[in-house]
Design a protein around this nucleic acid. Structure first.
Lengths: 229, 229
DNA sequence: CGACTAGTTGATCGCCGTCAAGTAGGGTGG
DNA sequence: CCACCCTACTTGACGGCGATCAACTAGTCG
């Protein structure tokens, strides 16, 4: 692990990390078969339609994962931060997927080739629990998002996105309205209108590209459980 | 396997089955640790908020899996037919999920307790590939459904549901408009209005509870890949 | 034959996506 | 340091899709 900064190493072991609870020897064996790769801000990590087979574990930085349609509409369904995995399912899947992954800022990752990942899993079935739990939460999150889209108003979706981002990153949120709207499944205009309301109510304050959550409780809505963004 | 009918046995081994490609000895070992259970039409297999831990494999019949919100809105996101698994992720998850599973008609399943399932997976990592592939397809399907909800009109969603059901069950589809609407994420009224259009165009014919697809090609829309219902 | 469920169609109405026309921040290069 | 540009943000007006309400017909099962 010598090429890691201290911060990166602790990110891999933190409570929020994918690796939490795994025996240290499994983690270090995984690190041994991984390459440390760096993406610059804005880099495409995988493109739509590509058959991306590698598994990534973010050690620093941020990856935005979206699907987009041919009409240009895009929805971001995952924001992968340090300690979190990306593409746990990819290596097992035959057909290319509709994912687009992009580095939101300079991002360092552990990269494991699909083949190596699959053999690792078979050799260390202990890690299956971590994988399944991670996927399970993401899976339920996708379904709660479907429910949200069906019956919640745009305002509530935005509030939920802000609430979730706040839990994950704390204030200030360094995201633009465009990014928020792609997470909530709406347009920038609607996002801005809602943020105007929230500002008037004293729940948030904003600056170009920054959002401070002043009253996190006011954003809460536990109906469908937490999103996993 | 002596308690199975011949049809049930072959359902487990068919090409569309979850078990396809697995060595026979693994399948029979799985059957050994499973109980054969029968649900009557309309039975709740798992209720909202319940911490359902068993894994089921349908050998005959049909299970409808939905999420519903407190306001009564319900979306069906999975129809599990013979040869298919249900709740592959449940045993690994701590918190209860928002799933509701119901027998759509008399349904026979192999039932495995969560603990037994997890040990089985660790003991036979070979099955991980099947599990991951199955989950992966469902996962992508959830995301394509999100895109659908965001940018497709109700008409197109209905058409896609009909097309997918036709692929899975063939004509006639023995479903009511209410059921179709819960799959498409809309109301019965909108569903019926669309079906009226499709009927006028000669693409389908309908009877109470039955839908014949006369022109499957006309329903095609490959934009987001196939749904997995 | 009666009751329940499924299907049908019309009228209304509001959310929110879209278009449009701006303002303002902040980085770059001369 | 200023002029410039690009991006982010802002606000108003409009209009359409589809949810909702309502009233009805037609199968089907006991």
């Amino acid at each position: 692990m010598e090429r890691f900064t201290r911060e990166e190493r602790s990110a891999l072991l933190s409570r929020e990390s994918f690796f939490h609870g795994l025996p240290p020897e499994i983690i270090s064996e995984l690190v041994d078969i991984a390459d440390l790769v760096t993406f610059s801000k804005g880099d495409f990590i995988s493109m739509i339609g590509e058959d991306f087979q590698d598994v990534l574990f973010v050690v620093s930085g941020l990856i935005w994962v979206s699907v987009c349609s041919s009409s240009g509409k895009r929805i971001t369904f995952l924001v992968v931060k340090k300690g979190e995995p990306f593409n746990l399912l990819g290596p097992y899947m035959a057909q290319p997927r509709l994912l687009e992954a992009r580095a939101h800022k300079k991002t360092r990752c552990l990269k494991i080739k699909g083949e190596a990942y699959m053999s690792f899993v078979e050799k260390h079935p202990r890690i299956i629990t971590n994988i399944m739990q991670w996927i399970g939460v993401s899976f339920d999150s996708a379904h709660s998002r479907i429910l949200d889209l069906m019956e919640k108003k745009v305002e509530n979706r935005i509030m939920r996105v802000l609430s979730t981002l706040h839990e994950k990153f704390n204030s200030p949120l360094l995201f633009t309205s465009l990014e928020i709207s792609e997470l909530a499944g709406t347009t920038t205009e609607s996002t801005l209108r809602t943020m105007r309301l929230l500002r008037d109510m004293g729940i948030i304050t904003t600056q170009r590209g920054k959002i401070w959550i002043k009253d996190p409780q006011a954003l809460e809505d536990t109906e469908f459980g937490t999103m996993k963004i």
